[in-house]
């Protein structure tokens, strides 16, 4: 079959490495002309939108064995970066050990996209909606690069202003610690994830928030992690709001203070149709609502969504 001229001009060559090391070496050799591809859904969308040029070379990470699947390892839940989002949802280990992450993944794109798109792709986009939940779950990233394997806290990687593009490495796994480190017996663990967009399903996010922690038997909060993202915002932990709550009861004074702190510290990337103030208030309202559900008044009002997760 004869290929049309424009097809050849537009179609990148595709390299199919067998190992992460081979993929890294190929990327080093081809430099800026090559792009790693996992599910390829975000890349394809960017090419169609013209926000990214079609590269000369694609390096298909899907051809590497051992980069997908979910398993328990060294006290962590390990998720292979090439695991399709829908496969994550169908794996009982994720629902059992990181339900907040499952809840977030369920809101990403639609079923047909989740069948192809991968958790690793969602992470390395730096704005994926799994990220706030992974931050709240205190996740780490396992990279394979020219200097071997390296583990880094997700929060640290996201707080780097601009990733060093000269460094060639690929994301192999995301690791989530299996609770128990900061939870005392009888403490009630809670978690919540919210995504606000312009429709109920298959929508880009405007605001995402995630929080988890423990309510001790004496009513104090411990082990609180709060994060927020949405749209083109690189998600981040809201550390001052976390500090403000730690060791306190979720009483009206504390909730009032945390509301102000979330609104002050959450810095959404500009969106032409949703002003910052709207998004700040949305994030603050969602966080405070979840904390209020932990109180007697909240429970009496049927605040079940922030129920204990383990």
């Amino acid at each position: 079959m004869v290929l049309r001229h424009e097809e050849i001009l537009q179609s990148p060559s595709v390299w199919r490495p067998r190992t992460p090391e081979e993929a890294v070496a190929r990327k080093r050799a081809l430099g800026a002309d090559a792009v790693f591809a996992a599910g390829g859904t975000l890349l394809r969308t960017r090419w169609e939108a013209g926000t990214e040029a079609i590269p000369r070379h694609l390096i298909d990470l899907g051809s590497i064995e051992g980069l997908s699947g979910i398993w328990l390892q060294d006290g962590d839940l390990a998720i292979g970066a090439l695991t399709a989002l829908d496969d994550c949802l169908n794996d009982p280990l994720l629902g059992r050990h990181a339900p907040i992450v499952a809840q977030a993944i369920r809101t990403i794109a639609g079923w047909s996209v989740r069948n192809v798109a991968t958790i690793g792709g969602n992470i390395v986009s730096r704005t994926g909606d799994s990220l706030p939940a992974l931050l709240a779950a205190d996740a780490s990233l396992v990279w394979i690069g020219e200097d071997g394997e390296r583990t880094e806290k997700l929060a640290d990687w996201l707080s780097e202003p601009i990733p060093d593009r000269a460094r060639v490495r690929l994301l192999a796994q995301v690791r989530i610690p299996l609770g128990g480190d900061d939870s005392i017996a009888n403490a009630k663990r809670f978690f919540a994830f919210h995504k606000v967009g312009r429709r109920e399903a298959f929508t880009p996010s405007l605001v995402t928030v995630a929080l988890c922690g423990s309510l001790e038997p004496d009513g104090r909060l411990t082990g609180i992690r709060i994060s927020a993202g949405g749209g083109q915002t690189v998600p981040a932990r809201l550390k001052r709001a976390e500090e403000l709550l730690t060791g306190r009861m979720p009483d009206p004074d504390a909730l009032g203070e945390v509301y102000e702190q979330v609104a002050a510290d959450y810095a959404p990337a500009p969106d032409p149709f949703a002003p910052d103030m709207y998004r700040k208030l949305t994030a603050a309202n969602l966080v405070v609502t979840e904390l209020w559900k932990l109180t007697a008044a909240g429970e009496a009002a049927g605040g079940k969504e922030g129920a204990p997760c383990r």
Binding site: V14, G40, D60, N115, V116
Partner: peptide
């Protein structure tokens, strides 16, 4: 939409090598 190994997939997002 098409089925790839029984799962719905957007054929506009799916490349030949996949």
């Amino acid at each position: 939409m098409v089925l790839v190994d029984g799962k719905p997939v957007n054929s506009c997002l799916t490349m030949a090598y996949q």
